[in-house]
Design a protein around this nucleic acid. Structure first.
Lengths: 152, 152
DNA sequence: ATTGGAATGTTATAATATATCACTATGAAC
DNA sequence: GTTCATAGTGATATATTATAACATTCCAAT
């Protein structure tokens, strides 16, 4: 859980390693830009906007235009290495890439930290209501905003 | 449930009536623009972007600029007469204004219909996970995308 | 060597959202 | 009745987020 103090260097390392392995296995290209964007996302448990990413890329010497950031982010999201937080129009590295994915997010409105969690929603009230309505859920955005334990 | 066939005229009437009453009671001003925007939202069980609203307003003869739409929408959202669908960056009229509010949405990716539902999330897996983490949820965005019964 | 695909570079622009200041009307306080 | 404060609206400008479209590069397969 990203709210708790933890060895953060490990998060970054694990994230990159997992993406590297996954891409290797699936024949995907974790190109320098894609890897760099993933690293940038992994450096904080906070959601970054595409333009934040762009700015950081340009600090690295990449003088990139918006599509570059969006393409890299799309790639990462598409393959589960990152997620989009709709509430913030921003992106965050996946912190549980091993887990089967129906991520939900806890967003602290004070420190902006974001934690990825995995409640079993489909079995709960939402899934039941949808089923009763004859609605087939393909994807669910679940984002709770509030105050994290550290900011209380 | 907005997916089912129903007397839709009733939806509009009820929505406007409820807002009128509520505003009366609470000393809020349901001004012509605010009421018109609410009506526009109520005419479809679909989310409309602020600029869709603007366009429709201008068809009515209001030659309005973006802030006009956003202000009206903010008012409606703030007082629970409408909701923002984050996934779509768009707005939808509240269809259950009487109910206590923790709305969730079912969004059909085919016909774009949106249904507002009220699962008891806080009691479910999400609430439990948050509580265990020491996170206090103030507001939750829950938006499921999939296929509605009519489009299957 | 040529072709075809995937990634990136580049320019332009679309779509969504807000800051700011000016103006108007209304009603409360004096 | 005038003054004042407030809420709403009008209007201009600009910020923020996102994508379309086309050119270029690189590499692998034929």
């Amino acid at each position: 859980m990203s709210f708790q103090s933890h060895n953060h260097r490990q998060c970054i390392k694990r994230g990159v390693q997992h993406a590297t392995d996954q891409c290797e296995k699936a024949g995907l290209q974790l190109t320098p830009i894609r890897q760099r964007v993933l690293e940038l996302l992994l450096t904080e448990h906070r959601a970054l906007g595409a333009y934040d990413i762009l700015e950081k890329l340009s600090e690295d010497g990449w003088k990139s235009q918006p599509p570059v950031a969006y393409r890299a982010l799309d790639f990462l999201v598409q393959h589960g290495f990152a997620h989009k937080v709709e509430r913030l129009n921003a992106f965050i590295a996946c912190t549980t890439p091993e887990t089967n994915h129906n991520p939900a997010f806890l967003i602290c409105r004070i420190c902006e930290a974001v934690a990825e969690i995995h409640p079993q929603l489909s079995r709960g009230a939402l899934g039941r209501t949808a089923k009763d309505a004859g609605f087939v859920i393909e994807q669910a955005v679940v984002e709770a905003e509030g105050v994290c334990p550290n900011c209380r």
